[in-house]
């Protein structure tokens, strides 16, 4: 059994779970300023109230799993992106408590937690996007240590991916609202979605052009024969999903926009994986080079394989019970 391969799959899965589950949460925080009325804000909050917060645990699992299975990658990637990761964590702290404190605070303090919620969501998303872009650009490593500068993560490309992720999460948020609400909130969500869809499609096109131009290795991976045959479904499905998404918004469907946005996000994630595979520290340290000994990976895998399915089952059940629309005046507390 190829333990590094399994572990790469487990960690990719944990991160994907995080992106899917926290993406629309963060998106709602980003969109919050566009819902100024208190009743609307309450509805927005209520749509995620039951599924909030557990999401971040996937991020913790991704981090701890990375340390256990690929200590070299953990140490290099985290120290290379020191500042943006710290900024992201601080954003998540604010976001994590603001949500609850908002309901508990004195009336005159509430606006502070509202701002903390917005600011935390935006900061966490933007810096996740920055890290993603900078990661894809590659990390110089000498003698198993990060060998770049402290500010190497600030590049036009990474700043762009930061913005792109803001758009992506915002779109997840707005389509989520379409699915979960009605009336004035839903109307506003449709308006926002129409703009955000084009924003996201533009961002995807720009990244798809920019990445191979910037990095010949990645161009090679996608366009050389026969890779192109294996990789082709990803762009094709992306175009199909994009078309269906536009159609669904035009037809004012309720659930479809969210599902197709999710499809787009997942496809992008897969595409990102193809660009990097099998490297865990781009451009050239593979999952096998970075892996911890089998004693570590095997020992930890036992626990992961028992517990992760249980958590998944519980989570799915939670979403299932919580299906349906949230209305004005349905109290959160």
């Amino acid at each position: 059994m190829d333990l590094p391969f399994i572990w790469a799959a487990v960690i990719l899965f944990a991160v994907l779970m995080y992106v899917i589950m926290d993406g629309f949460d963060l998106g709602l925080g980003i969109l919050y300023p566009w819902f100024p009325a208190k009743e609307d804000r309450d509805v927005v909050m209520n749509t995620v109230a039951p599924v909030w917060d557990g999401n971040e645990t996937w991020l913790v699992l991704g981090g701890a799993g990375l340390l256990a299975a690929f200590p070299l990658a953990y140490s290099v990637v985290l120290s290379a992106f020191y500042l943006p990761l710290i900024f992201m964590l601080i954003g998540l702290i604010f976001r994590g408590v603001a949500f609850e404190f908002r309901f508990k605070a004195h009336e005159h303090e509430r606006h502070f937690w509202d701002k903390a919620f917005i600011g935390g969501s935006i900061a966490a998303t933007f810096f996740q996007g920055v890290v993603l872009g900078a990661y894809e650009q590659g990390i110089p490593v000498v003698e198993r240590m990060y060998a770049g500068s402290a500010w190497a993560w600030v590049t036009p490309f990474s700043l762009f991916t930061g913005l792109a992720l803001l758009v992506a999460y915002a779109l997840l948020g707005s389509t989520w609202l379409i699915m979960k609400t009605e009336g004035s909130v839903q109307e506003q969500a449709y308006r926002l979605t129409k703009k955000l869809v084009w924003g996201l499609l533009a961002a995807i096109v720009i990244v798809c052009v920019w990445t191979p131009l910037m990095n010949p290795g990645i161009a090679q991976r996608w366009f050389a024969y026969p890779n192109i045959l294996y990789a082709a479904p990803v762009p094709i499905l992306t175009v199909v999903s994009a078309a269906l998404l536009l159609l669904a918004v035009a037809k004012r469907s309720h659930a479809a926009p969210f599902l197709f946005t999710l499809a787009l996000v997942i496809l992008n994630y897969v595409g990102f994986g193809i660009s990097l595979w099998p490297n865990i520290i781009p451009p050239n340290i593979s999952i096998w080079d970075a892996s911890s000994p089998p004693q570590s990976q095997g020992f930890t895998l036992v626990g992961a394989l028992v517990i992760i399915p249980l958590v998944l089952a519980y989570t799915l059940w939670g979403y299932y019970v919580f299906r349906g629309k949230v209305k004005h005046g349905e109290g959160y507390h």
Partner: peptide, 23 residues
């Protein structure tokens, strides 16, 4: 996350022992 951000060389050196315990 701080083990990686602040103590990266420690994480590389001993992560295969402390990582599984943390996980």
């Amino acid at each position: 996350y701080e083990f990686g951000t602040n103590w990266s060389r420690f994480s590389d050196y001993a992560g295969s022992v402390t990582g599984p315990l943390l996980t």
